[in-house]
Simulated scan of single mutants.
Amino acid sequence: MELPGTILAGEDYEPVEGRVVVEDGEIVEVEETATASTDIICPAFVNAHTHVGDSIAKEAGRGLSLDELVAPPDGLKHRLLEEASREELVESMQRSLEFMEAGGTTAFLEFREGGVAGVEALLDAAGNLDVEPVVFGREEVEVLDVADGFGASGARDADFSAERKAAHEAGKPFGIHAGERDAHDINSALDLEPDFLVHMVHAEEIHLERVEDSDTPIAVCPRSNLVTGVGVPPVADLLERTTVALGTDNVMLNSPSMFREMEFTAKLCDVTAPEVLRMATRAGAEIAGLNCGVIEPGREARLLVLDGDSDNLAGVRDPVRAVVRRAGVDDVADVISP
């Protein structure tokens, strides 16, 4: 397979006119050459933090606080998940995953409620799609038998030492929410030596230093944080210290669109378009242990092809800024996945 156009190549996403050559699901060559194609070829997205199970409750809970919406075990989402049948859950998750796939996401890191049964339901929902779930199970240690890792709600909710130890012994990653409501649970979360943190809206200097010293990656979700009223993560400060990836968080509150998340982050936070694109691609891939997110030989061919001659993108002078700040699902010409 050969994909001609303007390629956002390498770790700096430098626009190159040429073609990407793909064989057996792997990028084998990025060739600089003249081409008549107006397509823009960039790495496909890796959504670094989702709660796709909440697809059953989109836009529920208007006017509720964050704790009333999502806090275990009695938050609205947990009650709605408990009330829904397995068939309803699987169908609603599948619809969200189809939307994600059409919008250029080929992998996502999911914090999945419901223990073993919850993980199995998500895997069923994703079974016939070209979007790969990297699933962090919750609620019971036994979930590590079927999940890719363990995803903890937060150090304020419980002592997750046993789950952290079990994940380590299983050779699987452990992630935990921290600093979403306030700073009080950040040190406790870092004491668990997690493989990554989620949110860090209220990170203070001492936390930033600890993150840098431990080289702990962070998944941020700016749209979700703003809609729940907890604030905006200090994205620029976090980027100075560690790997920062971009997630869309709770499908109950936000569509799982990486286009929307990138535009929001680029326009709200003091970060460049290449930094945001890296957050949406390579950074999430690194946290998930996937060999993608960069267009270079030897990488998995997870690629997004945009129509550079669409009404929205025609006349673009800076392809990277266009992908991050302007493009949307209507501009997608193709999504390539191994």
Rank of each mutant, 00 (worst) to 15 (best):
A107H: 11
S92K: 09
E82I: 07
P73G: 10
Q94A: 13
K58H: 04
E87L: 07
A57Q: 01
E113M: 04
K58P: 05
D74M: 10
G118S: 04
E91G: 10
R62T: 11
G118F: 01
L109I: 15
E101R: 15
E101Q: 15
V116Q: 06
M93V: 11
R79V: 12
E113Q: 06
G63Q: 12
R86W: 11
D124T: 12
A84S: 12
L97E: 13
D67P: 13
A125S: 06
S65D: 03
M93E: 14
F111K: 01
A57K: 00
L123C: 14
S65N: 08
A71M: 13
A57V: 01
E110Y: 02
A60I: 04
L89F: 00
E83I: 15
A117D: 06
S96E: 14
A102K: 14
G75C: 01
K58A: 03
P73Y: 08
A102D: 12
F99R: 07
A125Y: 05
K77D: 01
P72H: 00
E110T: 02
K58I: 05
L69P: 03
L97Q: 10
L64M: 15
G63D: 14
E88C: 14
F99C: 11
G104A: 11
E91Y: 09
E82V: 13
D74C: 08
D67N: 14
E82W: 10
G61V: 01
E113I: 06
S96N: 08
T106N: 05
E110Q: 01
G115T: 04
L64N: 12
L80T: 05
F99L: 14
A60F: 14
G115H: 02
L69D: 02
L109T: 01
E113L: 06
E91H: 06
R86L: 14
E120W: 05
G63S: 10
E91A: 12
F111S: 03
R86M: 09
L81I: 04
D124F: 03
E101I: 11
D67Q: 12
E101W: 14
A117N: 00
L123V: 13
M93F: 13
E91D: 11
R86K: 12
S65Y: 05
V90P: 01
E91Q: 09
T106L: 10
H78M: 06
E88W: 08
E87T: 04
G103W: 01
E110W: 00
F99V: 15
G75F: 02
E113D: 02
G61Q: 05
E113N: 08
E91W: 08
G61N: 02
E113H: 08
A126L: 15
A117Y: 05
A57E: 02
V116L: 13
L64P: 11
R86D: 13
E88A: 15
G114K: 07
E91K: 08
E98F: 07
A117M: 06
G103L: 07
Q94Y: 07
R95F: 12
E82C: 13
L122H: 02
L69V: 06
L69C: 02
M100L: 14
V119P: 00
G61A: 05
K58F: 00
E83H: 10
H78V: 00
A126H: 07
V90T: 01
T105W: 05
A60E: 11
S96D: 11
M93I: 12
P73C: 10
S85F: 11
E83R: 14
L89V: 02
S85Y: 09
R62I: 11
E88Q: 15
G75I: 04
G63E: 09
